[in-house]
Design a protein around this nucleic acid. Structure first.
Lengths: 191, 191
DNA sequence: GTCTATACTCGGATAGAC
DNA sequence: GTCTATCCGAGTATAGAC
């Protein structure tokens, strides 16, 4: 691994374990094994370093899974696929949440990160849109009923996973299983 | 309003508008119209001040609404009640999210806040549990079907509202309406 | 109870040598 | 490319007068 890569790893590790507020250049330099001055040879300033971490050290399994699903409409079992989405989403959001939440404490960093995501055409909305497209295909194939609402169903399932991840990070209380969430989404709730 | 109250208001305002990272004692003192020294006469330290803000300046309409619903099981129309819950939840989470997210950047403050909530027997899990209890009553009254899962349904609806609030704070994209979410929850989705 | 003034610490960033 | 040494500013907290 090259110097820059080790700096990014160190920064990501400190950000996750100590929190964004304690992620200082001194701490990151110590953890990476380089001096503070060296950091500034590879990154313009602290914000530049943080944005690089957010860009290059973000887990990607959820977007990848949804991209894979989108390319195989109708293939496989709907419930099984949604179950995998739910499990992957909970894991993904659980990993991502602490850092994503942290940047709300620094509006300038938040705005810069949002801009970077927009520029690359990615971001949290796109995950929901990808799942909605998959569900729309499932509806066209007859795997979902004629009254189904792909957009809303995607929002319900991913929202529950997102909140599950939040609650897991905040308290350690479990909540409904992925199976229960998917079944509640697909089962008739009303009388 | 007394001195202490004005200090809390100023702190809450700065925390919301400038972000937790820029919520300094200097800034809060300036905004409140008092000196920094005066702050330390009313609060032991900065953490004590922040915890007081989280405790005494948190919006309460969602917990209140759910408490009211719990006391009137079966009363009123299920769909209308869920719609009110969804609207209130989106508004509540939208207001709360930036500050709640912020404190993830300071693990010490996060732990202290979690402890304070636990001690008072409140917290985000209890909102979900309250809605689940209301839905369980609705099921007992026959307003929900025999296959309905109150816990999972509550997690789906509140989760979607929670994520809606997050997305609204992050980008400004709208997403499904409260009506669409409630209907998708109550309508049969599967074929 | 509130102020002014100040002590102290820490974090971001740079200069200059090697 | 990396280090050592250092500067500067900002932020928390306190002392002491009124």
């Amino acid at each position: 691994m090259d110097t820059r890569g080790r700096m990014l790893d160190a920064a990501a590790h400190v950000m996750r374990t100590k929190g964004l507020a304690r992620a200082t250049t001194k701490e990151i330099a110590r953890e990476s094994g380089f001096s503070e001055a060296a950091l500034y040879k590879h990154f313009r300033d602290k914000t530049d370093l943080f944005l690089a971490v957010l860009r290059e050290r973000a887990p990607g399994h959820l977007p990848e899974l949804l991209a894979a699903l989108a390319e195989q409409p109708g293939r496989g079992n709907l419930r099984a696929n949604l179950l995998e989405v739910a499990r992957t989403a909970i894991e993904f959001y659980t990993e991502t949440f602490p850092m994503a939440a942290s940047i709300f404490s620094e509006p300038a960093l938040l705005a810069a990160h949002r801009g970077a995501l927009t520029e690359r055409g990615v971001g949290p909305q796109h995950v929901r849109e990808a799942l909605a497209r998959y569900l729309a295909n499932a509806k066209a194939d007859g795997d979902l009923g004629p009254d189904a609402d792909p957009e809303a169903a995607a929002a319900l399932l991913l929202g529950a996973c997102f909140m599950q991840a939040f609650l897991g990070n905040f308290t350690n209380e479990a909540g409904p299983s992925p199976e229960a969430l998917v079944d509640a989404l697909l089962t008739r709730q009303c009388a």
